[in-house]
Amino acid sequence: MKRRTFLGGTVAASTVVAAPAVVSAQAAWPNRPVQVIVPWGAGGGTDYHARTMATLLEREFRNPFTVVQRTGGSGVVGHSAIAEAAPDGYTIGTVTVEIGMMHWAGLTKLTVADYAPISLLNLIPAGVQVAANSPWRTLKDMVDAVRANPGRHKSSGTGQGGIWHLAIAGLLNSMQIRPDAAPWVPSEGAASGLQDLVAGGVDIVPCAIAEASTLLRAGRVRSLAVMTASRVPAFPDVPTVKEAVGSDWTCESFLSLMAPKGTPADVVARLDAAVKKIMEGPEWKQAMDARGFGVNYMGAGQLQAFATRSNEAFGGVMRALGIART
């Protein structure tokens, strides 16, 4: 009889299995491995944050935190997997800035409202990188050149309509230049975009300044500006956009830890507290310093408000660019 119920249908059966989970989760969470879903590839910035955090959370809770890659579909696959997991505290994931972009592009219906935010993992400020042999010494040189010859200078660093595409489009837009005046050449990510920059295939890569740190130190690329309100501590010589050309445009990617909506509040609170403790510790600082990332913490409530603001801002840029479909 019982067996028949289970085999009756996937939906019915999974409800049966999931129902007691919520109860037992509150009893003694965590008592089995917790999955940390990462929507982006192994080796990238998000993966780096997730693996470092998972390793430290594992020590904190004395319970395995397993990083699970769910890549592809421009982030849709992984973000959906997090939102659709059973909200029992045993599946969490890294939700990135794209959650406020994908739905504007019509790729998914998911928004930040479909998650229970835990805490911010980091803010990743965008920079404007050019090759070391580029004639542009300052951001003003570059902006003037793009203004004089719209369409001639190509930029790259992520997919079409990705975060860094919006960074450059928004910057140009704020300077009363057509947002597509530096046409976008899609790439798999910042690493391949930067390589193309050094190879002379494109002229501008507006990716995170931390992603360019190795080539910056090697003297192969130059960072003209960072798109933040104040200078980035790891790169004190690089001016802000405001200092360089007077525009108020800023662009920061964020990555955060979130759980499926409906995850018990006490589990979220315990995770948030653990993340806060880890971020204040030396290992996290050291891991972030190594790659030129900062340490930025926000709790659940702050993160919710921040992600909602980010969502609105990018919606505006995407409409200006004509790539918003909704």
Partner: peptide, 21 residues
């Protein structure tokens, strides 16, 4: 030499190199 991965294995290795200073 450049922190640019030559294949999918070294893409992960680069992160580890950073972690190890």
């Amino acid at each position: 030499v450049f922190g640019i991965p030559g294949d999918s294995v070294t893409a992960i290795v680069i992160g580890m190199l950073f972690l190890k200073g």
